[in-house]
Amino acid sequence: MIFARATDIPLARDPSTRLVPWVIGFMVFLAILAVAGGVTLAGMAAGWQQGLTGSMTVQVPPLADDSDEETEQRVRQALEVLRRTRGLGEVNLLPSEDMVVLLEPWLGGGVDPDSLPLPRLIDVVIDDADDLDMDDVRRRLAAAVPGAALDDHQLWRERMVGFLELLQLVAWSVVAVVAACAIVMVVFATRSGLAAHRRVIETLHLIGARDGYIARQFQLHATRSAFKGSLVGALFGTGIIFGLLQMAHAMGNTASSLAVFGWQQWLILTLVPILGITITALTARVTVMQALSRLV
């Protein structure tokens, strides 16, 4: 019924308004990509902030008068403490040979690891940051293994978070620009529709139609156009995001960036076309009401 009534003004035949679904579709597509980028970056930044992502390193330096066995003992104790800590996943001692490989650029090849007082490094994967109490780990580690140092990459993390926040700002700016473009475009399309149907609108007025009745026709038409466009744009947009996630999974990049793309993120993405339709309809209505209020 509502749709049958929408034909009081033949908007569907306008060449200018026929472009609207395409443009809205493209805008929704862009917005989805940008929003997906934004929420991923937000999740990553939050993860980094809590130390959720990645790992920590524990250094166990050999003490000056320690024998190798004593050092091994200290390393075993450190491993023990770490393995009994809630929230931590894999705890791995880096083999001395690997250390040599890591140091090769500085020390040159063929160095005997035993001839150097190299600290032993333990790589710790953080499993669940919420369960992890960093201060507690630090305290217990210091008690069990004096001299052991825990590096949770604080400085590196802060820089990373700052960088991610900057990228997020870029993503949200893209979303804002896309929304602004869509609004401007809908305003122009609506105005051209108003101009093209001046006479019909005038006749409707003379017959006793209220501005709201006329605005409703534009609003309905805009909603339908936006619905068509948004649907296609959203399908393509989410399709690409889905593809990217699959690709990232295939590359084994599951732990860090992808853990942050859950159902909440998908929900936010579905809001994009809904918002697109709402903004389009409202813009059309406001444009018409404003233009009509300037008529006699």
Binding site: R5, T7, P10, L204, I207, G208, A209, R210, Y213
Partner: peptide, 14 residues
């Protein structure tokens, strides 16, 4: 763009 019927019905629909 409207049929005879719709044209005549318009004042009532409005």
């Amino acid at each position: 763009h409207m049929s005879t019927f719709d044209n005549v019905a318009l004042p009532l629909r409005v």
